[in-house]
Simulated scan of single mutants.
Amino acid sequence: MSNGSSSDSNSNGSDAPNPEGERLQKVMAAAGVASRRVSEDLIAQGRVTVNGEIVTEPGRRVLSTDRVTVDGTAIQLDTTKRYVMLNKPIGVVSSMQDEAGRPDLREFTRDYDERLFNVGRLDAGTSGLLVLTNDGELAHVLAHPSFGVSKTYIAKVSGSMSAQTVSMLTKGIELDDGPIHADKARMLGTASGGASMVEVTLHSGRNRIVRRMLDAVGHPVIELVRRQFGPLHLGSLGVGRTRDLTKAELGELLTISRGGQDAAAPEAPVEPESSARE
């Protein structure tokens, strides 16, 4: 780079850079943010922070453990971390090794070099969006119910659901383990056999909560699919297929995760497979 030498000579500047590591514009380019030249422009414009401080010198050296944001969105510097979206089929349990011998998630992770695990769970009878990663901190925040990551489900339920019943889901109902309400709920239409299609969004992490809510209002679930998890949308990903998260998706996810880490600073060991499930 034309200004590389002058940037490196700034190692004792006010930004207090790490004596080791890579130059900021280089790691930004490696993370897929932009080319080195464009990354330098972003830095000069004051749009980049390192560990919460605005950095305007591209020579700032950073480590993979530093927290870098561009326009407030986190970027991932650690290239050893992997983030994968799976459209989990019905009949697969959310475990890396099922003791009962049922189909598990190893079928979808064996082709990856990294040792991936699931963020939270979906019941064997529920299909849809599941995140697989080797980032334990992110998994802890996103799966733990106290951090309130929203999930959106599409349910096919028995019977013709009325507008009043849909309203009950958002106003709140009483279950055996306490009151609960959906953040959003809406009718999507009818299905064959007199069934109804309903969309439910909530952030609760209680077990089988969508099924129990719909059963409580008199419309047992026939089929259930998770279409959205936080900022992630299942889109057109086929059942049983996986794909890496895009840079934009990962940025949104990391921003949520780091916010949760800063707020809670959990010290307990991460146990991703013990998380609540639907």
Rank of each mutant, 00 (worst) to 15 (best):
L234S: 01
L116W: 12
N10T: 15
S204F: 01
L253I: 10
E174W: 00
T80P: 03
S11C: 05
M96Q: 12
R102N: 08
D15K: 05
F229W: 03
A191G: 11
A182E: 04
A265L: 10
M28A: 02
D41P: 12
Q164E: 15
T190E: 13
L138T: 10
A216N: 04
G52E: 06
V92N: 06
L237Y: 07
G4D: 14
D71L: 04
L63D: 03
I222M: 00
P179C: 01
D41N: 15
F117V: 11
G21H: 02
V84F: 07
E99P: 03
H144L: 10
E40P: 14
E249Y: 05
V48E: 02
R82I: 11
P269Q: 09
I154Y: 12
V221H: 02
T190D: 09
R37L: 13
V33M: 09
S2P: 15
T109W: 12
E107D: 12
A263H: 06
D71W: 03
L232Y: 08
G235M: 05
Y83D: 08
L138V: 13
R121H: 03
P17R: 02
I154Q: 12
I180L: 07
T242V: 15
R23N: 07
G128D: 05
S94A: 10
T201D: 09
S127Y: 03
Q25D: 15
L116I: 14
R277D: 07
S11L: 03
G4H: 15
L169C: 07
V62H: 02
D176A: 13
A155T: 04
E40H: 13
G205S: 11
V221P: 00
D176N: 12
Q97I: 00
G13P: 09
V210P: 00
N134P: 04
S274D: 14
V149P: 01
Q261F: 09
T80E: 07
S35Y: 09
S7R: 11
G205I: 09
Y153G: 01
V157M: 03
T73H: 00
V166G: 01
G91S: 06
A143S: 09
S6L: 09
D66A: 00
G193W: 03
S257W: 03
N18D: 06
D177N: 14
T152G: 02
V239Y: 02
R115V: 10
S162T: 15
V239M: 10
N207M: 07
P103Q: 05
R115G: 05
D15Y: 12
V221I: 00
A124R: 10
R36Y: 13
V198C: 04
R211S: 02
V239F: 06
S167G: 14
